[in-house]
């Protein structure tokens, strides 16, 4: 018995170290992609110059490019990627559905609609609006999630994956139509702003946005991690979870609430990028397995890499008229989604 226990613990530790190494690799990849991102774009900044500027010895122009333009944008794209990935990971676990993701389910569209309504009513972007926007986005996202949940949930067989996806796509189509209707009413400048935002471009990022999204994620991600074991068990199905002592309905509501809040802040601060919440958790699961304690942080890193790389590509391909990040992600994401759909059992 003793020996077996030691063997088992050693094995557990070996697996843990292996997964930690993969996690660290992802971290290195994220740092590398950030460095590349800093150095690329319309205004070139060599690595050494970047380092010098970082240390406070840059010229006025270098300071401007690095601190005011590039850095907040990179930080925002990483944070959004992380948030959307974590949100997707939670929703996939809770619904036992590999294809669920806040973007595809229309939750992000719900958040976005609220943001547009707000923009319509308030023509100027003030500091107040940065504080209020996340809550409006949360309201929109929560309402959408609530509607989808109510429609897709059936008492007899719970939340069927197929019904969830179909409901989500339906709701998303409806919300998009409504959004288009509103956009028609915008004047030219508003229209341009919203059109870019809709397609997902991290425009006009500033430190206020960075701070706001950071604050939300600092509260929400540890909460989700604290619940990681509950997520593991929920993934075994409702009845098993009940049998293992989980109040399924309550925990599911809390966790979906957390995931919706995370995706709402991402939409409010940045944009509506679909597919990140789908791709990142999948790649992470392939790398470190299905245990959420390690899966969630790894998904966050993969999501961060994905969006920051997409943002860099968006900046590099067409330096003058920048293409929105969301489109770059979608070019990779859409085929991946179809691949998963073809492979899935439903």
């Amino acid at each position: 018995m003793k020996n077996k226990n030691i063997d088992a613990r050693e094995y557990d530790e070996k697996v843990f170290i292996k997964r930690m190494n993969i996690f660290l690799c992802c971290l290195v990849l994220l740092i590398l992609s950030s460095i590349i991102s800093i150095n690329s774009g319309h205004l070139k900044l060599a690595p050494l110059d970047t380092l010098r500027t970082m240390l406070g010895n840059g010229t006025a122009r270098e300071n401007l490019v690095l601190f005011d333009i590039r850095l907040p944008r990179i930080l925002i794209s990483i944070l959004i990627g992380m948030g959307l990935a974590v949100s997707g990971c939670v929703i996939q676990n809770v619904t036992k559905n590999d294809l669920a993701e806040p973007g595809l389910l229309g939750i992000n569209a719900g958040a976005g609609l609220m943001v547009i309504i707000y923009t319509l009513l308030n023509k100027e972007k003030s500091f107040n609006s940065i504080l209020i926007m996340p809550f409006l986005a949360l309201l929109g996202a929560s309402l959408t999630a609530f509607i989808i949940y109510k429609v897709a949930y059936k008492k007899e067989d719970g939340l069927s994956p197929m019904r969830l996806i179909l409901t989500g796509i339906g709701v998303q189509a409806g919300l998009t139509a409504l959004t288009t209707l509103l956009v028609v009413k915008l004047d030219d400048t508003q229209f341009n702003m919203i059109a870019t935002w809709q397609a997902g471009s991290i425009w006009g990022s500033n430190y206020q946005d960075v701070i706001i999204i950071c604050l939300w994620l600092i509260v929400l991600i540890p909460y989700i991690l604290y619940k990681s074991k509950v997520l593991d068990v929920l993934n075994l199905g409702d009845e098993i979870s009940h049998g293992l002592g989980i109040d399924v309905e309550k925990e599911r509501r809390y966790l979906i609430g957390g995931a919706v809040a995370i995706s709402a802040i991402c939409v409010a601060v940045g944009e509506n990028i679909s597919f990140v919440g789908l791709i990142a958790p999948h790649v992470a699961k392939k790398l470190v397995g299905p245990k959420n304690m390690i899966l969630i942080p790894t998904s966050a890193l993969v999501g961060g890499v994905l969006v920051s790389v997409a943002d860099t590509i968006a900046r590099v391909i067409l330096p003058t008229s920048e293409i929105p990040t969301g489109i770059v992600v979608a070019i990779i994401g859409a085929p991946y989604f179809l691949y998963l759909f073809a492979k899935s059992k439903y």
Partner: peptide, 26 residues
């Protein structure tokens, strides 16, 4: 509470499904 019941009673539903990639021990 659900947890108190779970300490006294284990329930195995019909044909449960394990998530991909989980080992027997896990």
């Amino acid at each position: 509470t659900t947890r108190e019941v779970a300490k006294k009673m284990a329930i195995l539903p019909q044909t449960p499904q394990a998530p991909n990639g989980l080992t027997v021990r896990e």
